Amino acid sequence: MNSITLDRAGMPSRAKTIRVADDKAMLRAAAELTRTHSQARPGIYWADLIASVVIGYGALAVAILTPSTGVTIAASVVAMLGLYRAMSFIHEVSHMKHSALPGFRAGWNALVGVPMLIPSFMYEGVHNLHHAKTRYGTVEDPEYLPLALMKPWTLPLFIIVSALAPVALLVRFAILSPLSMLSPTLRRIVVERYSALAINPQFRRRMPEGDALRLWNRIESVASLWAIGLIALAATGVLSLRSFAIILAVASAVAVLNQVRTLVAHLWENEGEPMSVTAQYLDSVNVPPPALLPALWAPVGLRYHALHHLLPSVPYHALGAAHRQLTAMVDADSPYHKASYKGLPGLVAKIGRSTMVRR
């Protein structure tokens, strides 16, 4: 799941394409596990989401209401982690069969998507393109940039600009949404360029149609009203500037943490030609146990991001068991073992070193 675009101006003149033959044994084992782990458990989804929301908004309320600076900071950190986990369910929403979890998309939008101005349509119909076998790692992938092949300064910029996401989303929904209803040209621009959680600046989203368009319009209308109302409350003093600043700061922290997680979700070493499924897997990252911190910065199954590219239909709560079983099923020299890493610092350093290599 991604949020801020970055230009490709830092790309070297000679691009790198990863060519790896598919490992049939690994893919057969993954296909077998898909059949045995594809059942989503609604109780887990709802309990996890509601707990994350209660912790996130509860801590945010404490941060706003307390007069103590120390408590405000501590509560803001808790709010950021809780809301980040709740937000991360947008990834599950984009993959799930909604008949298996009736009402979950609507509930997520009501609790998280609209209040945080990241409604599900910003990811649905976009993220699935990232999983298309012929699109991954190419200019047609909305969630891919060859960051490891770009200039070193692009990595800190990639993270820093994400802090502006809450302001950008307020502008998108409070200003551009209503104005675009008056201009078909502006509407096309808003849909194509400002309606996707993507990092590829060349990606242009298609206009939705049919039921998808009707659902989009309903959710966007509510999100637009919420954004306008939030700004109006702050402008009239009903919501104090301190409270508004805390809300924006927590939302910015969520965006930055997500962007850091995005930075280490892949190795970002491909540019150009389509890749085999095995190559896509090896360009992706697992951070399995015994590491503990990934449960915070890569929640809701995102610590098994490489495995997710093999098993995109497997619900997040089953990925841990699938990882353990697949690890035991494949040979010791299987490429499956090569996508697991120890933690965040080593991954950031690895990508950073890649940008230092002169090509």
Score class of each variant (00 low, 15 high):
residue 3 S to Y: 14
residue 5 T to Q: 10
residue 11 M to G: 09
residue 13 S to V: 14
residue 15 A to Q: 14
residue 21 A to P: 12
residue 22 D to Y: 09
residue 34 T to W: 12
residue 36 T to G: 08
residue 47 A to D: 03
residue 56 G to H: 06
residue 57 Y to P: 11
residue 58 G to F: 09
residue 59 A to F: 06
residue 59 A to Y: 04
residue 62 V to T: 12
residue 65 L to W: 09
residue 66 T to K: 01
residue 70 G to D: 01
residue 70 G to N: 09
residue 75 A to I: 03
residue 77 V to T: 05
residue 82 G to Q: 05
residue 86 A to S: 07
residue 90 I to D: 07
residue 98 H to P: 00
residue 100 A to I: 00
residue 100 A to Y: 00
residue 105 R to H: 00
residue 115 P to L: 08
residue 116 M to L: 15
residue 117 L to C: 01
residue 122 M to A: 11
residue 128 N to M: 05
residue 131 H to Q: 07
residue 135 R to D: 08
residue 137 G to F: 03
residue 146 P to I: 01
residue 149 L to C: 13
residue 151 K to R: 15
residue 154 T to A: 06
residue 154 T to K: 02
residue 155 L to A: 08
residue 157 L to P: 03
residue 162 S to C: 10
residue 165 A to P: 00
residue 172 R to E: 04
residue 182 L to A: 14
residue 188 R to F: 03
residue 196 A to N: 10
residue 201 P to V: 12
residue 202 Q to R: 15
residue 207 M to C: 01
residue 209 E to P: 00
residue 209 E to K: 04
residue 214 R to D: 05
residue 223 A to K: 04
residue 224 S to H: 02
residue 224 S to M: 02
residue 225 L to D: 02
residue 225 L to E: 01
residue 226 W to T: 12
residue 230 L to K: 05
residue 231 I to N: 04
residue 234 A to I: 02
residue 237 G to C: 02
residue 243 S to M: 03
residue 247 I to V: 15
residue 254 V to P: 11
residue 254 V to T: 06
residue 254 V to L: 07
residue 256 V to S: 13
residue 260 V to F: 03
residue 271 E to V: 02
residue 274 P to Y: 04
residue 278 T to C: 02
residue 280 Q to F: 00
residue 282 L to D: 07
residue 282 L to H: 05
residue 284 S to R: 02
residue 285 V to N: 15
residue 288 P to K: 14
residue 298 A to G: 12
residue 298 A to M: 15
residue 299 P to V: 09
residue 300 V to E: 04
residue 303 R to L: 08
residue 313 S to H: 14
residue 313 S to R: 15
residue 316 Y to W: 15
residue 325 Q to P: 02
residue 329 M to L: 15
residue 330 V to N: 08
residue 331 D to H: 10
residue 336 Y to M: 13
residue 338 K to G: 01
residue 346 G to K: 12
residue 347 L to I: 10
